[in-house]
Simulated scan of single mutants.
Amino acid sequence: MDKVSFGFEDVAPEEKTRRVGSVFSRVASRYDVMNDFMSGGLHRHWKDMFVRRVRPRAGDSILDMAGGTGDIAFRMAERGARVTVADINEDMLAVGKERAAKRGLQGLSWLRQNAEELSFGDAHFDAYTIAFGIRNVTRIQSALDEAHRVLKVGGRFYCLEFSTTTWPGFDKIYDAYSLRIVPKIGRIVAQDEDSYRYLVESIRRFPPMNAFKAMIEKAGFVQTKVEPILGGLVAIHSGWKV
């Protein structure tokens, strides 16, 4: 049986899906607070930068996959886009709906979806976004294939994800911080050390920037680009369907 990565472990695909679901159900209520603690608030800047690259326009129909708590969707909806927030995890969606209600945001659709098997028809959306979610998908290539399928001709794909920094020395500092400190922050802030150990380990198992770019191209996207941030600690990947 083929194995997939769950952090530093190799497990059956069904086991990864189940365990990732458990991780996000446990961390949903503290997810955004933990993002602030772990990144020192930088994730807000990265997300702003990401949405500027997407350039959502009034009337655009956008699928925000793994959109969970709504951080990306809110930014795009404020620019007039019609956003479908999709996530496999109901607990993350519940947090997002509550946050949207508090902000008085209307016009967002919230749907439980598996990125590998979307329920939408072909050529349905103008853009597909996924931020810090693709590495948690069990079969990443299947999710990329589905992203291509549901986009209209001329549609654009954007992915924001952690990667591997190429800055000499910084990689060692980040490794020490993420592997030793982040799980402890998770224990203190979210009362869940194991989930944040997995999330850090999952970054280490994610394909390097050029390898992931090749996977996007394999799905059929063209004019693909990679924009490294902090030397590739985080990267914005993009491509077009033609």
Rank of each mutant, 00 (worst) to 15 (best):
G67N: 10
A28W: 04
G96Q: 14
R18A: 03
G96S: 10
R57D: 07
G41D: 14
S109I: 15
F37T: 07
W46L: 04
K97L: 07
F24I: 12
V85S: 08
G21V: 06
R44W: 01
R75C: 01
E78N: 12
Y31R: 04
A94E: 07
F74H: 09
L63G: 01
G21F: 01
S22N: 10
D60E: 09
L105N: 14
G104H: 14
H43A: 01
R79D: 03
G41E: 09
V54W: 02
R19Q: 03
H43W: 08
E78S: 13
R26I: 01
T17P: 00
M38H: 03
R82L: 15
R44G: 00
A77N: 08
Y31N: 00
A73H: 05
D71R: 10
G59V: 12
T84E: 11
V27N: 04
S109A: 13
R18E: 02
D10S: 06
V83G: 10
E14W: 06
A86G: 13
I72Q: 00
R79H: 05
E90N: 12
H45S: 03
F24D: 00
G59I: 12
M92H: 05
K102S: 08
R82I: 14
F37I: 15
V23A: 00
L63E: 01
M92Y: 06
G80T: 10
L108G: 11
D60K: 11
R75E: 02
E90P: 08
A81V: 13
L108H: 14
P56Y: 07
M49A: 02
I88A: 08
V85M: 08
S25H: 01
R30F: 04
I72L: 03
L93D: 03
R55L: 00
F6G: 00
G21P: 02
T17L: 01
R57H: 04
R26V: 00
K3R: 12
M38C: 05
G40C: 04
K97I: 13
G68N: 06
M49D: 03
D91Y: 12
Q106T: 15
A73F: 11
L105S: 11
A58F: 13
D2R: 02
A94W: 02
L108A: 10
R44D: 00
A73L: 11
V27H: 01
A101K: 15
D36F: 13
R26W: 00
P13Y: 01
G96Y: 11
H43N: 06
D87I: 12
